[in-house]
Simulated scan of single mutants.
Amino acid sequence: MDFSLVNWLAVIVAALSAFVVGGIWYSSVLFGNAWMIDSNLTQEQIKQGNKAKAFGFTALFSLIMAANLAMFLADAKTDTSWGATAGFLAGIWTFAAIAIHSLFELKCWRYIFINGGYSLISLTLMGAILGAWR
Rank of each mutant, 00 (worst) to 15 (best):
D2C: 07
F3V: 13
S4D: 10
S4Q: 10
L5S: 09
L5Q: 14
N7D: 13
N7G: 08
W8Y: 08
L9A: 12
L9W: 15
L9H: 09
A10T: 09
A14Y: 03
A15P: 02
A15G: 10
A18W: 00
A18P: 03
F19I: 09
F19D: 02
F19V: 03
V21F: 13
G23I: 10
I24R: 03
I24N: 01
I24V: 15
W25Q: 04
W25R: 04
W25T: 10
W25M: 07
Y26E: 00
L30C: 09
F31N: 02
G32V: 11
N33E: 14
A34V: 13
A34P: 07
W35E: 00
M36D: 11
M36N: 06
M36C: 04
M36G: 05
I37F: 10
I37N: 11
I37S: 08
D38Y: 13
S39A: 14
S39D: 12
N40M: 02
L41K: 14
Q43C: 03
Q45K: 15
I46N: 07
K47R: 13
Q48L: 12
Q48M: 14
Q48A: 15
G49T: 13
K51R: 09
K51M: 15
K51S: 14
F55K: 05
G56Q: 01
G56R: 08
T58N: 11
T58E: 13
T58F: 15
T58K: 07
A59M: 09
F61G: 04
S62A: 15
L63A: 10
L63Q: 02
I64S: 04
M65A: 14
A66D: 08
A66E: 07
A70F: 03
A70K: 07
F72K: 05
F72G: 14
L73H: 07
A74G: 08
A74R: 11
D75E: 12
T78M: 08
D79F: 08
D79E: 14
T80L: 14
S81R: 13
W82C: 00
A84W: 09
A84T: 06
T85W: 11
T85G: 07
A86H: 11
L89T: 11
A90M: 15
G91N: 05
W93R: 00
T94C: 09
A96K: 04
A97K: 06
A97Q: 08
A99M: 05
I100C: 03
I100S: 10
I100T: 15
S102I: 01
S102T: 01
S102P: 02
L103I: 10
F104G: 01
E105P: 00
E105N: 06
L106P: 01
K107F: 07
K107E: 04
C108T: 14
C108I: 06
W109A: 11
W109R: 05
R110A: 04
R110E: 08
Y111M: 07
Y111W: 15
I114Y: 05
I114R: 00
G116S: 05
G116R: 09
G116F: 09
G116C: 03
G116Y: 11
G116I: 02
L120R: 02
I121C: 08
I121H: 03
S122D: 02
S122V: 13
L123T: 09
L125D: 00
M126A: 13
M126N: 05
M126C: 03
G127V: 08
A128G: 07
A128D: 01
I129D: 06
